[in-house]
Design a protein around this nucleic acid. Structure first.
Lengths: 203, 203
DNA sequence: TTAGTTTCGCTACGGCCGTTTCGTAAAGGA
DNA sequence: TCCTTTACGAAACGGCCGTAGCGAAACTAA
């Protein structure tokens, strides 16, 4: 489907890519707060107005960059939910580790926690960014929710289980631990988390 | 314990209170992003330098305001963990609702989600703010963790349960739902959450 | 060709954050 | 009393975000 020929001067070809590439580099190097829109435009070799025509705020740009670097984690039901969930959550932890290792060296805290928190804050600041962030996570998590439904229909999970609630518990615990408690997020924690969620706390 | 008499001119008595009060009012009225330090100082009737001598950044000030309005939720083990946890989580939800209702009317999304996300972002931006935020939550959650240990020793919870993991699941799910999925946070969700966490997902 | 539309780069601006400077005020110590 | 120390208000500043205005460029439509 070729886009309908529009009226005036066409947008500079490849400008979007140049901007997103420069922005990604600067974002990983400096983190959200030390990231400057002026510098991103300059690094991309583009006027600031050209950037702002595409992304109306710094928040919009950052979320676009983050959405772009989201790698999908391929997951399929293997017959062992515990193993599948453990693998998926470990992939999230590993992705956060990559951001952390790429982050700024200064003692400004955890780069991965910072990025997650800033994306959440951007989602709360602008309604359209919020919609984009919610869609980004929904898309990313859809495969896992389907996996949980499959495991439930296979009898490995309780028939009355709400997969969304279970997933909120798992992913939520990861981000809560990362952002609120400041305690380490590693494979051992993922293992304890999956066990507790699957086997339950009662009795 | 009287503070040791310090050398120079003493700090203006009551200035801290005036600033925190004005800041709280402005924060609830406008939200983090539309909150201006200059305006907070002017409203408090204080020079900006006086404010910055006490809180070196806007983030420090906001976190101090939030820490101040944290009301502790009194919880004791009643012999029914499900009821106790439900009450506690509903208190959190209710507290977020209060912030939401006090929030700005403009379509800038959810005021409570915004405040939570901004506090998390502030914690990630400055190491000392992070320590304060972690301590604030640890203090707030300590009673619940003690409650869980009590319930475990009373045989209502699994003897091998890690209370921290269980609590991460519960609180994390709330904030994850609020910030990431954008879906409603109400009593019905709290009920489903507690049930799933206590009874487990397996079988 | 001509007119109209949209984008481009460039520049300047207002608002806010955080810092700095300056003169003054209020305390303790000699 | 005089000196030192710390806090105060007022003002100015640089950096960054986001907006506005300008002339030029690139395209469509007539």
């Amino acid at each position: 489907m070729v886009p309908a020929a529009r009226r005036g001067r066409p947008r500079a070809e490849g400008a979007d890519e140049k901007i997103l590439g420069a922005a990604l580099e600067l974002l990983l190097e400096r983190g959200y707060d030390r990231f400057s829109v002026d510098e991103a435009a300059a690094t991309a070799g583009v006027a600031k107005t050209t950037l702002y025509r595409r992304w109306p705020t710094k928040d919009h740009l950052i979320v676009a960059v983050v959405a772009r670097m989201q790698d999908e984690v391929p997951v399929r039901y293997s017959g062992d939910v515990r193993a599948d969930l453990t693998r998926y959550l470990n992939a999230i932890v590993h992705g956060l580790d990559r951001v952390r290792r790429a982050g700024r060296p200064a003692g400004s805290g955890d780069a991965s926690a910072g990025l997650v928190a800033e994306v959440a804050a951007a989602a709360a600041r602008h309604a359209d960014v919020g919609a984009a962030v919610h869609a980004m996570f929904a898309r990313r998590n859809a495969v896992v929710l389907a996996l949980l439904q499959e495991a439930r229909s296979q009898g490995e999970l309780r028939p009355d289980l709400d997969p969304e609630v279970l997933f909120d518990q798992l992913a939520g615990a990861l981000y809560y631990r990362l952002l609120v408690t400041g305690r380490p997020l590693d494979g051992a924690y993922v293992g304890r988390l999956v066990s507790t969620a699957l086997e339950g706390a009662a009795r």
